[in-house]
Nucleic acid binder design. Sequence first.
RNA 1: GGGCACAUAGCUCAGUCUGGACAGAGCGUCGGACUUCUAAUCCGACGGCCGCGGGUUCAAAUCCCGUUGUGCCCGCCA
Length: 615
Amino acid sequence: MYTQIGAQHGRPPRPAGGFGRPFTGGAKSPRMFRAFRAEVADALTAGLETLDLPTGDLGIEEPPGDVAATLASSVAFRLAEELGSPPPAAAEELADAIDPDPYDYIRAVTTQGPYVNFQTSHAYLQETVEAAQADDYGQLANRDESVVVEHTSANPTGPVHVGRARNPILGDAVANVLDTAGYDVERHYYVNDAGRQMAVFTWAYEKFDESDLAGEPARDRAEYDLVRYYRRGNDFLETADDEAVETAEAEISAILQGLEAGDEATYERVGEVVDTVLGGMQDCLARLPAEFDEFVKETRFMRDGSTDEVADRLKNSDHAVYEEEAWQLELDEYDYEKNLVFLRSDGTSLYTTRDLAHHEWKFDNFDRAVTVLGEDHKLQAGQLQATLDILGNDPDRLDSVIYSYVNLPEGKMSTREGTGVMLDDLLDEAIDRAREEVEDRLGDRVRDDDLDDEDIERIAHQVGIGAVRYDIVAKQPSKGITFEWDRALDFEAQSAPYVQYVHARCCGILDEADSDPDVDSVDVTTLPTPEDGELIDVLARYPAVIEAAADDLQPHRVATYTRELAEAFNAFYRSCPVLDADEATRRSRLALVAATRHTVANALGVLGVEAPDSM
RNA sequence: GGGCACAUAGCUCAGUCUGGACAGAGCGUCGGACUUCUAAUCCGACGGCCGCGGGUUCAAAUCCCGUUGUGCCCGCCA
């Protein structure tokens, strides 16, 4: 029995130790920073034991930028009392008790006031640059653990608007980060094809003709065409006279009953509308690109009997009550005041009932499940998790990533009302603005690389779509976003182009070099400047960033990291000549540039942002 | 009415879970740097009751309590 998961208060459901099992490393896995961190923990523990002091809280942290250390400990604050000496003296005593010699990656242990600082060794820097020569630097070892990431899952009622766009962008990044962290990931889109909305849509599509509709489709694609029927149908239900509405409702109800009864002809009628609209939406999402391994239809769990089976098991549970002719579940043990109805008084299932069958199916086929949901589904997600627990599942196998909606300054976006900015329009506009930028800069290009029209178009796509994605994925999902054109299309620093530009610069230098760097040519003793060192330090942290982002299901951390890496590279670029350096330094710096290129490309890849070879 | 989230520089955001080094960036404003591996870059200046009030602690943007404002949810809808 769990208590924290599913509660309406407190943090979103998440296993205590972060996502998944602790990572144990692996032969192929780059370990530099994480190994260093482990050594620091070990050294601190040993030092404290030597002094007969408690080792429960090591206080390991990353020091501020101007401190010449990669990790530090604030444990001296807590030793002061124990030792009867002020924190700086305690720090001194502890540092003296630590012998860095046995450790591969600890060069020195120093103190600065009350802090014990740990500096990295030559081997740490050397191995970092070597490890980052791999194209897939940052890819962690396979964990033999499968995860299904469900995201987007928008009802197939019409074009994807910006209010929903956070879901595929976030979801794709979550899936990427788990993939990079060594999980076997599948991406699913759950298609709600059994609800009232689709019944209304099917009825409207059959009832109305082209001539009944308001105007031309906004775009030449299926979902823009068909959404006009959906809107017409809803409008009819709101404005027609009572008798006509009653007739319509009977037809809509017949469609729902047909689905419930397993009527093949009804499935086909609804399926035609669903598949057509969904096909168009897929074309839109592919532009991001967000692609799926499987589109899982809700009706599947009605047809295979699993929804009925779930309902039967719930009826037999201790939490079930039959009130007001409907089967309900008491969830007060899980801090939910109201009962959850799982069978209507007419015996038919509800969305949640089908979703329970869906999630048990996920548990049958995957080790873990992650769902990316808008905040309006948070309550339902908690109830789902509680009910999965009642059904005897381990609810910790399911995690939710919740994001706040993107709203317009004037309010919500709605497919039915026809309000909102379409994702297609946003992407078009972003590409157009990026193209203008590229063309504007064409005149004063220092680099003589003759961009042709095809290059310009490629860069415009990479930068335009990249900027939109980055803008969304870089923010914490819990923060609300109000959509404004100028803000969404701001290509200034701290956005995708800033990071992409670093990749293009790396490519430019490597092109110019005419020889590929190789692992054997790296010698970090030929990289003496603080800028060299700082860049290597940032590169070394990348695998740890992936690990943390995967554990906490927070891809925005990877975005924060890309900015830190870009800053470190730009500082390096400013003060460290590569091609004109002496031979040994040139070889090492070329390797460092290649390392940066791989890291930037891979980190952007996790975010779903392309890395241009030139800009 | 109840629950959940959000609030950090004029604007957009990191940092909050796991309390520690003077609260960091970018945009905007002002001032600088391209005969140089790409200036979509870099350097400098200005700019902060970390919503507000209490509490815990050697130490609070971070933890606890209260409060205000905003968003979301509380259906035999999805």
